[in-house]
């Protein structure tokens, strides 16, 4: 509690910001009457607040951009980015090309747009995959729990924990060698991360977990602060391929991953 004898800096700011109760406010005002220098500061600080509102309050009057609203209402699972509709249709086209390339056309096209619950699940799934990517690719000493020279053990172990037979896609043809993997937790659910490395040291990850009954989806793309992911659900697994790359570059690798998984 402040008395008029001892008003400190924090009280003065609280006075500026209207965070004092009426009694405290009176104390500060009485004190300021005798301290003109501090009173001048208070005046200047109040003016700062007013000017901040003068400059930035116009933002409050702007309509919320639809892509921001869509994230909250869950109307779209992927972030459209600035390219908007063009980007989304490009993705559909790209997904169709993958289908033709891999020959997995049957049924997949029939799924059409996924139901909203599936979409929401997928969005948080990509979020988890990207989070795990950020955490572990930076690791120098322990990027993986089990290195790739024990691939059989790695795959058997992760398959056992995921409860479904896991396959590590072969990405050698696009320049990435498997360096290993680790077990992660997504909520209470086990998930696996496989890490691949390019000759120049660049790393990408494949994040996998049981699909939990979600219906198959086409490729979806999400990009967040320099890291991008393609993610999809196929049969028993939900996959996300995560890399610090642009869409087109990542697409080539996603195609390879999908095609390799599909052939086995």
């Amino acid at each position: 509690m402040i008395g008029s004898e001892s008003v400190n800096q924090a009280d003065l700011h609280a006075y500026v910001d209207g965070q004092l109760d009426p009694a405290q406010r009176l104390c500060v005002e009485a004190w300021l009457a005798e301290h003109p220098e501090e009173a001048a500061s208070i005046h200047a600080y109040r003016l700062q607040n007013t000017r901040l509102h003068d400059i930035y309050d116009t933002v409050l009057d702007e309509a919320i951009p639809p892509e921001l609203e869509a994230i909250v209402t869950g109307q779209t699972a992927s972030r459209p980015g600035r390219a908007g509709i063009f980007h989304r249709s490009w993705m559909r086209l790209a997904a169709s090309i993958v289908l033709l390339v891999t020959g997995g056309v049957g049924g997949w096209l029939l799924h059409g747009a996924p139901a909203p619950p599936t979409a929401r699940l997928a969005a948080s799934f990509a979020d988890q995959a990207m989070g795990a990517h950020r955490v572990f690719v930076a690791e120098v000493k322990h990027p993986v729990e089990v290195p790739a020279d024990q691939e059989t053990h790695l795959v058997a172990w992760l398959s056992k924990r995921l409860g479904t037979k896991l396959r590590a896609p072969d990405l050698v043809s696009v320049g990435f060698d498997l360096i290993g993997g680790r077990l992660l937790a997504e909520g209470a659910q086990p998930a696996a991360q496989l890490m691949y490395e390019e000759a120049d040291g660049r790393r990408i990850t494949v994040y996998v977990r049981a699909s939990g009954g979600a219906s198959d989806t086409s490729f979806r793309f999400v990009s967040d602060q320099g890291v991008s992911a393609f993610y999809w659900v196929e049969q028993d697994f939900a996959y996300a391929l995560v890399a610090p790359m642009e869409r087109s570059q990542l697409m080539a690798i996603a195609q390879q991953a999908y095609s390799d998984l599909d052939q086995r």
């Binding site: 951009p65 994230i71 972030r79 929401r120 969005a123 948080s124 979020d127 967040d224 602060q225």
Partner: peptide, 14 residues
């Protein structure tokens, strides 16, 4: 807005 978008995506995920 990109930052707000990241924030909202993250919030929805958690």
């Amino acid at each position: 807005d990109d930052l707000v978008q990241d924030c909202l995506s993250r919030a929805m995920g958690r």
